[in-house]
Amino acid sequence: MITLIDLLMIVVGTIFVAGFGIVAGLCIFGIDRKFAAHMQARIGPPIRQPFIDVMKLLCKDSVIPENAVPSIFNWAPVVALASSIVILLYLPLGSIMPVLGGLSGGYGDLILVMYLLTVPALAMVAGGFASGSPYATVGSQREMVTMMAYEFPLAVVIIAIAWRLSMAGMAEPFSLATIAGLTTGVPIWGVVGPVGILGCIILMVVLAWVTPAEVSRVPCDTPEAETELCGGLLVEYSGRNLAMFYLAQAVKTVAMASLAVAIFLPWNISWYVAMPAPAAVVVDFIFYLVKVVVVVFFSVSLIRVSMARFRINHLVTIYWGYLAGLGIIGLLLIMLDAFIKGGIVI
């Protein structure tokens, strides 16, 4: 039963998380651009540049092409942004329980997050097809192929971790609160033995490589490919609609990084240092932000400055072949670990 208080908490929490997601996403874009610029021996734009961009886009007209389907064309950005924010509601932010995914009366788990991660991409595909431009159509087709390519390695990672936790006898292994150790105080690294740690490292690498595809950045920005498709599925978008897609991508980047943090880097400072509860929340939250920036640096900024764009068929080969293979090796190592340790640890 949901009480009125619970409902109110959820509404207030959602508003806060939405605000946080957008601000943090834009900040991370700014930081990413600054990092990339320094690595490319440039000065780069100021960190607040994404805010300026969004503000500018919001002031501009939204042009709807003549042969577009206006309803889908206009709704796609809204759906993309909304679904990106919903993902964040299921993810723990530092030691703060997920707004919707908390253990007491949880409404969803990691499997739901996986599905939700595809929604912004699907919204972009729908918007691309609805724009009625050959560039956007090609971009949409590529986005669908990209999605199919990275879903499998991502699923392998998530299943492997959750399965190992359930073998360790944890209740609700798919709940993100459990995975992040919020309820048990034990992250995945504390559960597995040496073989499992090797497996987890492999899975972490796989997840780090899924991230650029998930947020469509170089080398996996084939659906947008500036020099080939001049923006691909976003080519016809302008003004407010484009701003919403931009925000959706920013929030999705935060969500993807938070997911990686929750699965593989869940430690909180308050686990090790005794401090009053309100201070712990603040300290853990700041520590969580630092972890998000680190994840974005390694799996987005660093990869995108050191690679050329993949061709779409290369992308599929790499994700289905190499990364999925790597993920399965990680999964096997974790299975082996479970048999060696006999499962139960706690």
Binding site: Q40, A225, E226, T227, V305, A308, R309
Partner: peptide, 16 residues
């Protein structure tokens, strides 16, 4: 050429 391949880092370095 590096820019056309989506490899902007190399593009900046080459022009530098």
């Amino acid at each position: 050429a590096a820019h056309e391949l989506g490899f902007d880092t190399l593009f900046y370095l080459a022009w530098r």
